[in-house]
Design a binder for these strands. Sequence first.
DNA 1: GATTCGGTTTACCATACAGTAAATTTTTAA
DNA 2: TTAAAAATTTACTGTATGGTAAACCGAATC
Lengths: 213, 213
Amino acid sequence: MCLTVGEGRMSDSRETVSSKDTEEVIMEATFRALSKHGYTDLRMRDIGEEMDLTRQVIHYHFDGKYDLLSSFLEYVIDQYEGSVEVDADDDPRSELDARIDQCLFGPEFEEFSHWERMKVYHELYTHAQNDGDHREIFNEHYDRVRGSIIEVVEDGIETGEFEPVDAERMGQLITDVIHAARGRRMALGHEDAPAEARKAIDQFVLDSLYADD
Amino acid sequence: MCLTVGEGRMSDSRETVSSKDTEEVIMEATFRALSKHGYTDLRMRDIGEEMDLTRQVIHYHFDGKYDLLSSFLEYVIDQYEGSVEVDADDDPRSELDARIDQCLFGPEFEEFSHWERMKVYHELYTHAQNDGDHREIFNEHYDRVRGSIIEVVEDGIETGEFEPVDAERMGQLITDVIHAARGRRMALGHEDAPAEARKAIDQFVLDSLYADD
DNA sequence: GATTCGGTTTACCATACAGTAAATTTTTAA
DNA sequence: TTAAAAATTTACTGTATGGTAAACCGAATC
């Protein structure tokens, strides 16, 4: 976020409505531009062309390209986490299923935008290997996502619905498979990767959880 | 590869030694530059600085940045596939183990360079979602890698060493886990990701193959 | 030993790009 | 209603970058 020098920027709590609006507009424009051109070929101009406002407003709200992209990373991550919705009082088995499905296919009735978001998300993810700050942001986010899956597994073990496996290792495995399948769908165009991954998880991974049926 | 206009470039078979040498030098310089700066921030200048030759020679041997990067992609993929070595007359179980280990940890005694190569490899992989040609090249490569794993599983099933699972699905699952663990190690800095993935594969995936012991 | 030719260097260019400054409009607050 | 502040636009700049042209070198070939 951009702090004007001199007298500094107004505090977050006093931020104008229109200012917040514009920043949202910029974020969505950034999203579309990124989605069209890819991270590597993203120009400030491209973002400008996705807005009604001129590209120079970006410099008023953000302190250059890097600051913009950092804010955008947090924006995307918030969206990701905000989009996950599971029935709180599902049994562990249903909740685990729901979480896996949402990670793989996105919130229902949003298939298209899901993959657009994921494309951008994965590109930022890979780029994080070159940027310590981005890596840190991703790590915190990743811990939350993986954690929520591990938690369900642990719950299921406690209630006796699941076999007493190493929940952390199991959760990490599932998370990894999801991530790879999504990435493969986008990088290689394997449309069926998520669906196949879902089946593979059921068939080869979750069977360790349901050993007694 | 660059084709000079006019009379065209000499056929591959007649290529000078020094010319091939230089191209190799450029490839390795590109590798180092990419590994240092990342795909997004790679400049032709950066490659030049990794060589004894000046950066302009690149334009003699390759037809611009895109052509260079395309050639480099094939170079990296060749290296990847060339580095995989398994004992031809191992039993399926050992061969599968060996292949998984090599994909996860690299050829023995090359740990460091393995991760440098992987970093570059994964960045190219993710970028492929923005480039149809690169995507195609990756797809062919990916099919070979996954195929070699599937093949081992099929062999094991035929000899009765493995349970009669869906070899394709199993092979794909293993490949996905490997890919995600490597990516996670690099993007998030999870040093133990490959080792943990190895254990998870043993514990939760391969157990479906060895159900009778 | 002159000449050709592949390969390399030096010097240079066009332009694409992020970023800035000042003018202008819109909103807020008195 | 007016003055100040915030937000946006228009016009511009500095420079980083990919690429080119012509000179230069060294090893084959005649």
